[in-house]
């Protein structure tokens, strides 16, 4: 009966339902949850992690994975802080850091598509290397951008019309990503490559280029997220961003992106980011220790995949 019930659900209905249940439960667990200030807080979390989730969605759609996001966040943070410290204007520093992210992503993409290294291994390698570069640049410590940090604080910590800036950034990222995936030949090619590489090739799709592209996009979004973290923390920390790639994978998977490629949407990823942020928020409000929170998060990943495989096998 459960099987028949699940089979008749449209895609994404499970996620929407889970969100509603979560919000209702959260408002019962803590009276502070529905407080506007708290809601903006949650949305800021959604934005911070959601950007990475969107990047990961691109990569996973091609049946890939990128483990270097967290390290890229750290390296762009350190590099950005160093540039600010040197007095480089923000208008130059930001594109430079984004270019750095694209370069890391491009390296991943090159290894995966042209050298045919399994994505897991290629990005595991860059994850370690990039973290090493961040530590080298920061000389083991942290980098304080000094007085220039104040103006840059706006990107991650500021408000525009009473709404935290990262939410605007996230909204733009999502809109562009949704258009690219849904309404461009490149987006179609991403789904095609993820569904069947050989069929994509025989359909005239440049598979290596598409693969290369999604990793570059992933690197770009990781760098963007690194800049926002730098702005919020006001310090470049080579040890920051640990495990963020796992967070991003969780968000994408909860959002219905299939690890087997070819299936997933930006809207789902937004939902995934919301689920994760609300759970973290409620656990915080309820005073659950960060250690137990990790256990809960892990359990959620397994549950999300379980529900996903259930939906598939019921087809």
């Amino acid at each position: 009966m459960m099987g028949a019930f699940m089979k008749n659900l449209p895609r994404g209905a499970g996620l929407a339902g889970a969100l509603v249940v979560l919000i209702v439960a959260a408002s019962f667990i803590s009276p502070h949850f529905l407080n506007p200030i708290n809601i903006l807080n949650v949305l800021r979390q959604v934005a911070l992690y959601g950007i990475l989730g969107v990047g990961m969605t691109f990569v996973i759609l091609t049946k890939g994975i990128d483990l270097s996001f967290g390290s890229t966040v750290a390296l762009t943070g350190v590099a950005g802080a160093l540039l600010l410290e040197q007095g480089v204007p923000i208008a130059l520093m930001v594109p430079a850091c984004l270019a750095l992210g694209v370069a890391i992503g491009a390296a991943n993409g090159f290894g995966v598509s042209y050298w045919r290294i399994p994505a897991f291994i290629a990005t595991l390698g860059t994850m370690v290397m990039v973290r090493g570069f961040a530590l080298m640049l920061a000389d083991g410590g942290t980098v304080n951008p000094g007085r220039h940090a104040d103006t840059f604080f706006f990107l991650g910590g500021g408000y525009l019309f009473g709404v935290p800036t990262p939410i605007y950034v996230f909204a733009v990222v999502c809109a562009v990503a949704a258009i690219v995936l849904g309404y461009t030949p490149f987006g179609r090619a991403i789904y095609a490559v993820g569904s069947s590489e050989e069929a994509a090739r025989l359909s005239g799709i440049n598979v290596p280029l598409v693969t290369f592209g999604v990793y570059a996009i992933g690197g770009f979004l990781a760098a963007l997220s690194g800049l926002i973290f730098l702005s919020r923390l006001s310090v470049g920390d080579p040890n920051s961003g640990l495990g963020l790639e796992l967070e991003a994978i969780t968000i994408a998977v909860i959002g219905g992106t299939s690890l087997f490629g070819g299936e997933g949407t930006v809207l789902g990823t937004i939902g995934g980011a919301m689920v994760l942020a609300i759970i973290a928020n409620v656990l915080n409000l309820a005073g659950v220790s960060p250690f137990s929170q990790q256990v809960v998060k892990g359990a959620i990943i397994i549950l999300a995949v379980l529900l996903e495989t259930g939906r598939r096998s019921n087809k």
Binding site: A192, S195, S196
Partner: peptide, 12 residues
């Protein structure tokens, strides 16, 4: 494996 994108729609 070579002809179709099985999980995608007929239109796709």
């Amino acid at each position: 494996t070579e002809g179709l994108f099985l999980i995608q729609s007929v239109g796709f």
